[in-house]
Simulated assay, not measured.
Amino acid sequence: MIERILRDRQGIWQQVVEDRSLTRLTGQMLLSSMVALACYGAVLGSFHSVWMAMTSAVKLPLLFLVTLAICLPTLYLFNLVFGARLSVRQSLSLVMVALTVTAMLALAFAPIALFFLITAPDYGFFKLLNVAILALSALVGLRFLTGGMRVLNENGLLAPEPPVVEKAPAAVAPGGTDAASASSPAAGPANGSGGTATLTAPAPVQAAPAVPPGYMLTPIVNPHQRPVRPSKQTQATPPSMTLLYVWILLFGFVGTQLAWTLRPFFGSPGMKFSLYREIDGNFYAEILRTLSHLF
């Protein structure tokens, strides 16, 4: 799955645009990402004990799933409010692409984390190293998400559907004939010999050549003036793209606070094993405190 996303991302985006077999695609991405996050969670908890490795292997996939469940309705409603025509399956598939890339990149960094765990078993350094790995992996995954939204914008799924303009019916002249038939030449009155006078059709008038709007028929050309090329019209960025970056920030804040709530993932070496800890402080204060102790 990760090879298909990295090698054929345009095919993935086209499948999302066409809303084709998205249930199967989303299930494959969900399974792949959960397995990768479970493996990486086991690496995080292995700093403390086997029990911590097992619980972190469960809590890290749970962290991403709960964050997705909290934030996905906001993304979907943002799109609906501003006229986007994305379904729930399409929105979920977009976010799952980002989540799968994040999980696979984190798994790719797992040997590096194990290397530093064996050679430099320092709790503060190991914690900051893995926070940096997860942050970098999440940034790459969110870049895939913004790329997919741009593809949907190019296909017109982020803009409201244009209204259908119906053609006006042809004008009908009194008597049941249309205007074209009424304006055609008719037979004249009878002449003195009892015959009918034949009217000759007027010569066709040659239509004037179509002139594009904004141009003169005989433009005045200055030989010393360089020709100005018409500027290329750029497509305006829809509000859904702007709100996507707001949603990414919201996703980051919810995820970090939930990670602080579900801790421990690493397990402090001076403390006994515990499944959860009391909620005190916040994630960012802990990172700053760890940095101050490390440097």
Rank of each mutant, 00 (worst) to 15 (best):
V95P: 01
W51H: 10
V131K: 00
A210M: 12
Y276P: 00
A207N: 14
A135R: 00
S56V: 06
L142P: 00
M216G: 13
S49D: 15
L6P: 03
A236F: 01
A203R: 08
F82A: 05
L249D: 05
N155M: 04
G267V: 10
A168C: 01
S184K: 15
S32T: 12
S137N: 04
F115E: 08
G281Q: 00
V205E: 07
S46G: 05
F125Y: 13
Q233P: 02
F253I: 15
F109G: 02
R24D: 14
A180K: 09
A210E: 13
M1S: 14
I220V: 10
G141H: 04
S87R: 09
G175L: 08
E154V: 00
T237S: 11
V228Y: 02
S184I: 05
T67Q: 06
P204M: 07
P162H: 09
L152C: 00
L77H: 09
S91Q: 11
Y215M: 13
L31M: 10
A171H: 06
Q233V: 04
S231W: 03
L94F: 01
A108T: 06
A197D: 06
T237Q: 07
E3L: 15
S240P: 05
H224S: 10
R263I: 09
R289C: 01
G175M: 10
P162T: 07
G45Q: 04
F273L: 02
F283P: 02
V66M: 14
L105S: 02
P219I: 04
T177R: 10
N282C: 07
R143C: 04
V43A: 13
T256S: 12
A57L: 03
L249C: 13
L258C: 03
L243N: 12
V246T: 10
A208H: 08
T26Q: 08
L65D: 02
R89V: 00
P162K: 11
R229A: 09
A113D: 11
G252Q: 13
G156C: 04
R289M: 11
T26C: 13
M54I: 15
F295Y: 13
L134H: 08
R7P: 02
A38Y: 04
L44S: 00
L68D: 07
G11N: 12
M241W: 02
N282E: 04
M29T: 01
N191V: 04
Y276T: 08
A159C: 10
P185K: 04
F251C: 10
A57R: 05
